[in-house]
Design a protein around this nucleic acid. Structure first.
Lengths: 167, 167
DNA sequence: GTCTATACCGAGATAGAC
DNA sequence: GTCTATCTCGGTATAGAC
């Protein structure tokens, strides 16, 4: 899915990787949509767990930025969203996850950032969270594409900001 | 491409929409990759032109934010990036466009924003441009998915910031 | 649980008539 | 330029034997 896109995830390709016959895939997951949903649920659980770990971290902002910047993760998320774009039942689940994930993120960061609103230009905490989140995602996707312009400056600026906030 | 993803763009589907036979698609574009590249070149030209118009606008920041927020546009871009993710020749062209597009964006905004760096928390102009850009994109994609959390707050904050900068 | 056999469909692509 | 005819491949999915 990461290397060739969700469209390359076929019963034949999966079976070949496992050294088995394609029909077995349909034995475990009747349809390919079932399979993608199962895959998504695994992933959602894993993301929630990693989010919880960030709560316990001594530098949650840094940890969050690193998590959201992971190119492997971002490319996978990208594929799931593309998949959601034309499979309605998957879209509903992903949208629900996205909203819930952000709400949890707010809980983690509200306490930390409220005291430092002036260092963040006085913006609402929600806004700062979304800016960091979207910037990390876009940078990672662009990296995967091979884009470069502005990346060093942006990563530098964010790195310094986070260091200052968590000193 | 917007409604069902790039994978739904097939010679058969295109021909059906045009009331013609699928083989004609291959007459005009030998391979489907040729077709996607032609489509991309059209789109790139159009995006460059709209970027130029922003230069002439009296409120370029507002115009830029609106352009980048257009859900139809963003979803299409999303599909092209997903496509690029597993077609190397397309990836190269899209990455090149992305870098060039951002450099042009810098030229448009550097003059405008340099004088107002204090209103932007002292961040480099490049950083402000990328923050606005990535936030607009992520909001639009999330909208398309049906996500809501934080959107009103983020749009409100950005709207006020842009208004203040361009008053 | 894993296999063989098999169905059906729709994708990309080419050859050649008109 | 548009058609008919045709090929090949690879996708999803089911039935039924072992």
């Amino acid at each position: 899915m990461r290397e060739q896109g969700y469209a390359a995830v076929t019963s034949r390709a999966l079976a070949a990787k496992a050294g088995l016959k394609p029909q077995l895939v349909h034995y475990y997951f009747r349809t390919m949509d079932d399979l993608f949903l199962a895959l998504w649920h695994r992933r959602a659980d894993s993301l929630y767990k990693r989010q919880d770990d960030i709560l316990k971290s001594t530098k949650p902002l840094k940890a969050l930025w690193d998590l959201t910047s992971d190119p492997q993760d971002v490319v996978l998320s990208y594929e799931f969203v593309a998949l959601a774009n034309h499979r309605k039942n998957i879209r509903a689940e992903i949208a629900e996850f996205g909203d819930r994930y952000r709400e949890r993120q707010m809980k983690i960061l509200t306490g930390l950032l409220k005291k430092k609103r002036d260092a963040l230009g006085g913006w609402p905490v929600m806004m700062s969270v979304m800016v960091l989140d979207s910037l990390a995602r876009v940078l990672a996707v662009e990296d995967a594409l091979g884009m470069k312009v502005g990346h060093a400056k942006a990563r530098g600026a964010v790195g310094r900001l986070i260091k200052q906030l968590e000193r």
